[in-house]
């Protein structure tokens, strides 16, 4: 497959896939006659979708140089479909940006490249490895989680490219700190989020104004839940990485979590690994993202499992959030997604 991405190390330019030669309209645009939807029967998904499209178009209208943060995970796949709904048959008025920790699951990176090639939009990749080589990130150990280090690479990229808005797939149901964040979340010169001094967010009138050096994080999926995301994936028939579906995997049991065995996580002395049918509820840094036991091999089965799940999405799946009750808040204050 043609690699659609250009890494910074290979080439200094930002431009990536040559879309000028692509036929218009962009691929994936389909057209069929619809019946008139009955507004009274409008459901939650329709309301959330329309709200998210509105947010994305406001970003396009208000910012000079926005990007969409794309990780290849399910939330960014949903976000990309919403961007298609907002801007097709035209092209996106922003590029996609992936902050590569170098600790990604290989399936996700393969998925990302295939997905972006099919989408026909520009993908910019910046890697934590480069930040480590450049001395901007110093790790205590090569296998430690790079989740927090992403913030450094992200903020450096924002400065490098003069980005004034980052669209992200974060949701308020994920975590306590996120529950208090605005849809348009202001970041100061240092990329910091100040939870005590947020701009009031009134109606759907988003104040998108920032001075040079400051930027905005924009979260169109703020009001979505994990279940909404899966229902939307089902409704839109979206492809997601295979990691989300049940598969056999070597794991080590560590307290409540099932740590996936890899180059980064090996059974310690006294620990035994075992093979189990698992799926991932989130995909992130390989050193801290853990699967849950599951036999769900289809989106329908995942929805059924999620609807009756008794553990929250990040509850038994993240080693880094377990560290302290305020881990996410502290990372966010330092510029995390």
């Amino acid at each position: 497959m043609k690699d659609n991405t250009v890494r910074k190390a290979e080439e200094k330019t930002v431009a990536v896939c040559d879309v000028s030669r692509r036929p218009q309209p962009a691929p994936g645009f389909r057209r069929k006659r619809l019946t008139v939807p009955d507004v009274a029967a409008w459901g939650t998904l329709e309301a959330l979708e329309s709200e998210a499209i509105h947010v994305l178009r406001e970003v396009a209208g208000e910012f000079r140089n926005p990007v969409l943060l794309f990780s290849g995970g399910k939330d960014s796949v949903v976000l990309t479909r919403l961007a298609e709904k907002a801007f097709r048959p035209g092209r996106f008025p922003f590029a996609l940006l992936h902050i590569d920790t170098g600790h990604n699951f290989p399936e996700v990176i393969a998925f990302r490249d295939r997905f972006v090639a099919g989408l026909g939009e520009r993908l910019i990749v910046r890697s934590v490895e480069d930040s480590i080589r450049g001395g901007r990130v110093v790790l205590k150990s090569p296998i430690e989680s790079r989740n927090a280090s992403q913030s450094v690479t992200l903020l450096d990229t924002i400065a490098e490219l003069g980005i004034d808005a980052c669209i992200g797939g974060a949701r308020r149901d994920e975590e306590k700190a996120r529950a208090k964040e605005r849809v348009f979340s202001f970041r100061d010169l240092f990329g910091e989020w100040d939870p005590r001094n947020q701009r009031p967010e009134l109606w759907n009138l988003y104040n998108a104004r920032v001075h040079d050096g400051q930027h905005m994080r924009v979260f169109p999926l703020s009001n979505w839940t994990e279940l909404d995301v899966w229902r939307y994936i089902a409704r839109e028939e979206l492809a997601v990485p295979s990691l989300y579906f049940a598969h056999e995997r070597e794991i080590v049991r560590r307290g409540p979590v099932l740590a996936p065995v890899s180059d980064l996580i090996r059974p310690a002395h006294g620990e035994a690994s075992e093979s189990l049918s698992v799926r991932f509820r989130t995909v992130g840094d390989m050193s801290c993202t853990c699967p849950v036991a599951s036999r769900a091999t289809t989106v329908g089965e995942i929805i059924a499992e999620t609807a009756v799940a008794r553990i929250s999405e990040r509850g038994a799946t993240r080693l880094d959030d377990q560290a302290s009750e305020a881990s996410m808040e502290l990372r966010k204050r330092e510029g995390y997604f």
């Binding site: 029967a41 089902a234 295979s242 579906f245 598969h247 056999e248 289809t298 989106v299 059924a304």
Partner: peptide, 23 residues
């Protein structure tokens, strides 16, 4: 372990939930 990205099967069993309204 699955090597392909899986698409969707029939999820009609969940359909009623889709029309819940939002307050």
């Amino acid at each position: 372990m699955a090597t392909t990205d899986m698409l969707i099967d029939d999820v009609d069993s969940e359909a009623p939930a889709l029309s819940k309204d939002l307050l």
